[in-house]
Design a protein around this nucleic acid. Sequence first.
DNA 1: CCCAGGCATGGAACCGGTTCCAGATCGGAG
DNA 2: CTCCGATCTGGAACCGGTTCCATGCCTGGG
Lengths: 336, 336
Amino acid sequence: MAVTLSDVAHRAGVSEATASRVLNGRRYVATGTRLRVEAAARDLDYVPNRAARDLSTARTSTVALLVHHAQYPAHGEGTFTSRVVDAVSHALRRAGYDLLYVPIDDAGVARLAGLASVRPGRSDGVMLLGPAFPHAAVTGMAAAGRPVVTIDNRVDGADAVLADNRAAMRSLTRHLVADHGYQRLACIGGPRRWPSTAERVAGVRAEARAAGASLSVMHARETTMRDGAAAAAELLEDPPQAVVAVNDAMAIGAMHRLRALPARRRPAVTGFDDIAWAQLTDPPLTTVAVDATAIGDGASELLLARIQRPDPPSLPAREIRVPATVRLRRSCGCSR
Amino acid sequence: MAVTLSDVAHRAGVSEATASRVLNGRRYVATGTRLRVEAAARDLDYVPNRAARDLSTARTSTVALLVHHAQYPAHGEGTFTSRVVDAVSHALRRAGYDLLYVPIDDAGVARLAGLASVRPGRSDGVMLLGPAFPHAAVTGMAAAGRPVVTIDNRVDGADAVLADNRAAMRSLTRHLVADHGYQRLACIGGPRRWPSTAERVAGVRAEARAAGASLSVMHARETTMRDGAAAAAELLEDPPQAVVAVNDAMAIGAMHRLRALPARRRPAVTGFDDIAWAQLTDPPLTTVAVDATAIGDGASELLLARIQRPDPPSLPAREIRVPATVRLRRSCGCSR
DNA sequence: CCCAGGCATGGAACCGGTTCCAGATCGGAG
DNA sequence: CTCCGATCTGGAACCGGTTCCATGCCTGGG
């Protein structure tokens, strides 16, 4: 049916071995031969059979991206995840790799925890997007020599790509205290065990302490708008001057709930992620923007480094921090 | 390195042929043999090598999903696309297929138009999500016998899955005219060539005529919040009583812009998609919800039907319409 | 009792590439 | 002029499955 390497070789009057060498850019092929083979391949519109190549090279040129949704709904429904997925996908494609997209729910995650043993499956490596993957599964894979990188999450012994959550939050908090003079802050955090939200809370805490502002921290079970609203409800009685949420979804939920207060007593609100809708809230949401492209590039760089040399003294785990920049809008009290 | 079929066969004391038969559930295997092979596979934690299987069966059990972003930003940034991606992915997984995720930009689309010829690539079939794929590329693939299904788009001769845009919009418009008594309507549409937005406009038009309301239609170049705002700006001078946008992003943009008007003259606004943020606008956005799960199921049903019997008198193109239901909130003037 | 036919199994070809190895050719150094 | 090594090429093994075909067994009907 399809054009095979043998067809190309035949048309060019060479052996399959030589044709293969040409098409893989190997050395030791005479220029004339090279040109003939290339012409034949072009004429026949030859496309190599991936299964055959994968089989003989024992590599797939494919990376699996697992996205956990059920426990990560704020992102799953939002735009941060899709931006990262696209960025990762583009970065991989540029490197000649394909992306297998695998959304995974609680049941799937549980199953994952079981097989710390490695499924070579149909990918050369795995990216885990989101904070909810069981520690054991990640370290299990990494220890077994299976290339793994976590995104927006970190686990000892595995490569990771995260935003510089702490620094960004310190800078944002400094703005609230120093520029606006807020002295009483509240922070709406996510689950304690999720590294990136924990880091954001830690950043707020560190800067509040340094700046001498009071801070009360609450931890939501998930990080949806609903959770943000619920947390905000507890603040209605004695509202702080500013509420720092660890993502935009919760910030928007909180802002919504805080409308119940008269404008005079209504706290400033800030978020994190800079999703598309952050510009359209009333007032527009001050938040932190993370460069999704940098995340995609970093993740694929780390993973491909492992894939492309899995043999030598297994590399120590690396971590890439992507800078995150504060986006001042009006919800923090700024006038612009 | 990895456990192979031959290992399993050896351990069970049978030939590879028999082991293969057992693991594929074929008939003509004695029960005792079957049990021995199954036990051996379990003991060795055998996972079949996909490349080898793909090569010998000439099928990949993989479907490529192309998502066009640059021309589809409202969805690319929003939540409709990601919901559909997840739904498709789950449906395929249930059927034993993997999903190759391929975001594609304008340049990619252009390239696609060129090769009406078929790239068998690494997938058994292709799903195209979004309205921006060139006609020729789609029909080319379909004609070449390559399984294709379009989502949120339709092209003659190719399978398609879409929301029942027209009916939903008629019903929504009827509500505006009959229940609220609006007589002067405006509709913010998308590009004329995008089937689903065109159908939505057609639905509004049909019902407005039937109900005797006046209607002015505008067509935005894309369908982002910005486009919605720009369209709304033109309505400020002589505002209609209700503005029907063809998606939520534009509706939100329009609502935002229309705040410039005093409340008395401010039109009702409605959207389409029921993205997460529609509940949080002020007032909450009346819109139309599409069942993403149904889209995923439909698309995978159509595609797998083609994949699993590509030989017989090539099936005529089929089209699945997914019901869409109106979600009344306050932006249309309802009180609840 | 013999034979047809269904059941159960193994041998081997095959899918379409990559790559090891051996042989051939050629230019330059000794 | 011979020898050596670098360059070029083809034959064939191999990757790990699936499946065609041949074979042997067992059962039941004539």
